[in-house]
């Protein structure tokens, strides 16, 4: 009986080890970099641009108050509590943090990812910037400027998901996203109010609206494009625009706040 007891224990422990090691193998097997075809040359003498603004029609919802009492450091940085950044507008209704990008019209052109990394910082227990845009294969660095520990957890649908911790003063976390995806939510489960979005593109024709709601997409080859504006709360809005050689077009997007919302 004793032998059977210890044999059962050994089997269960073995099973535990196998299961855990299987989980780790799956995590590392997906890290292989994706192959990248050579970039299509663009005639820079003919390129145009599209710029414009994104407006919010109607009253903007008030930012929600964040209670940072769960972490003394965060609470000390925001003594009165923080506020959410999901809807940021100015007095004229210009909407910030909107991703505007070429959704369609580039054909089979391919583009090299820039060598410079894109940064996402954790400052005062908030993500900075709130919206990160980059190209597939471009390096993405996560920094921790806070004197507290964070975990960084992007939750993509088309890319590899990861979850890493970053203590105060720890080296940057560098990673890449292999596939286009608009947009990947990023969360910190240590501080559940920390939310950000990463948009990954296979081309360089994208922009994020600033505090005045404006955007500017440069160096577009002549052609007809579908532009899409994406906002984390208000969804998407599409427009078609035709750019001639050396032409600069202006486009305005507008979103309406959902009725009955907060």
């Amino acid at each position: 009986m004793k032998a059977r007891f210890w044999a059962s224990l050994a089997c269960l422990s073995g099973l535990a080890l196998v299961l855990v090691s299987c989980g780790k193998k799956e995590e590392t097997a997906e890290n292989a970099p994706a192959g990248q075809p050579a970039a299509t040359p663009i005639d820079m003498s003919t390129v145009g641009s599209v710029s414009g603004a994104v407006k919010l029609e109607g009253p903007a919802p008030k930012p929600k108050k964040i209670n940072m009492g769960a972490d003394q450091f965060c609470a000390s940085v925001h003594p009165g509590g923080g506020a959410t950044e999901e809807v940021v507008t100015d007095a004229s209704g210009d909407l910030a943090n909107v991703i505007v990008y070429v959704k369609d019209g580039l054909g089979n052109r391919t583009f090299d990812a820039p060598k410079t990394p894109v940064e996402l910082d954790q400052k005062g227990c908030m993500y900075s910037p709130h919206i990160v845009t980059l190209m597939a294969g471009q390096t993405f660095d996560v920094k921790n400027a806070d004197q507290t520990t964070h975990n960084i957890h992007p939750v993509p649908k088309n890319n590899r998901e990861w979850n890493k911790s970053q203590a105060p003063g720890a080296p940057d976390i560098s990673d890449t996203f292999a596939r286009e995806e608009v947009a990947i939510p990023v969360q910190c489960q240590v501080h559940p109010w920390m939310k950000s979005y990463i948009a990954v593109f296979k081309h360089p024709y994208f922009a994020v609206t600033g505090a005045n709601g404006s955007f500017d997409i440069k160096n577009l080859p002549p052609g007809t494009y579908t532009l899409e504006a994406w906002h984390e709360k208000f969804g998407v809005s599409d427009q078609t625009v035709t750019i001639g050689a050396k032409e600069a077009k202006t486009v305005t997007f507008s979103f309406k706040p959902a009725t009955g919302g907060d």
Partner: peptide, 13 residues
């Protein structure tokens, strides 16, 4: 919503 606040296991950080 704290399940993934500790990314490693069985140790924590």
């Amino acid at each position: 919503e704290a399940a993934l606040s500790v990314p490693d296991w069985p140790l924590s950080y």
